[in-house]
């Protein structure tokens, strides 16, 4: 008997297949879709890269620039980058149609100019991250932030009177 009832059910329900891709499919607002970095906010701190389970985000240094590279081909859309970003610069969007014939569409690069160490001249941090750090440490320690980590470690104590042990910034 079950079979006949189910046939009746199928007729009364009709077609349930969605019209997609000829009609859009709705997803919730906080859907975990394509992650996008806002290049105007990102400081290049690398928190996302160290949290990213599949290493889809990598931070590299290229001369004067620090480059945050997001490759969607590795992304698992977990959204950990969004969780850990201190600036709110990376967000998962509701976009999920990522198939493309163009490999470049799967990459996002954020290039951030770096600041040189006042002592050795080596580029060591992005301007934006440094400005951000300067806002958060006392002025007197702030001067130390203009040194790269190596020079900071070697800096004579008189550079910073009473500075105590170094703030990593």
């Amino acid at each position: 008997m079950g079979r006949i009832k189910l046939m009746g059910l199928a007729v009364s329900i009709g077609k349930v297949t969605e019209r997609y891709p000829f009609a859009p499919v709705e997803v919730p607002d906080d859907y975990r879709g394509k992650p996008v970095i806002d290049p105007g906010i990102c400081t290049g701190c690398g928190a996302c890269a160290s949290a990213c389970p599949p290493q889809a985000i990598q931070v590299k240094e290229e001369g004067e620039f620090r480059v945050v590279h997001l490759f969607l081909g590795r992304c698992i859309f977990c959204g950990r980058c969004q969780d850990v970003c201190p600036e709110g610069a990376i967000r998962l969007t509701t976009e999920f149609e990522l198939a493309t014939p163009n490999h470049d569409d799967l990459h996002q690069f954020v290039r951030l100019r770096m600041v040189r160490c006042v002592r050795c001249g080596r580029p060591f941090d992005t301007y934006r991250h440094l400005v951000r750090s300067l806002r958060e440490v006392p002025f007197i320690e702030g001067e130390r932030l203009l040194l790269c980590p190596e020079c900071r470690a070697k800096a004579p104590l008189d550079w910073l009177e009473g500075g105590g042990d170094g703030n990593e910034g």
């Binding site: 919730p28 906080d30 975990r32 859309f77 969780d83 998962l92």
Partner: peptide, 20 residues
């Protein structure tokens, strides 16, 4: 999808609790 942001691979658990 409503609760976790995806149909599968909910990504909800972390050590110490849940994310959403």
């Amino acid at each position: 999808e409503l609760i976790t942001g995806n149909r599968k691979t909910y990504g909800i658990n972390l050590v110490g609790g849940v994310r959403r």
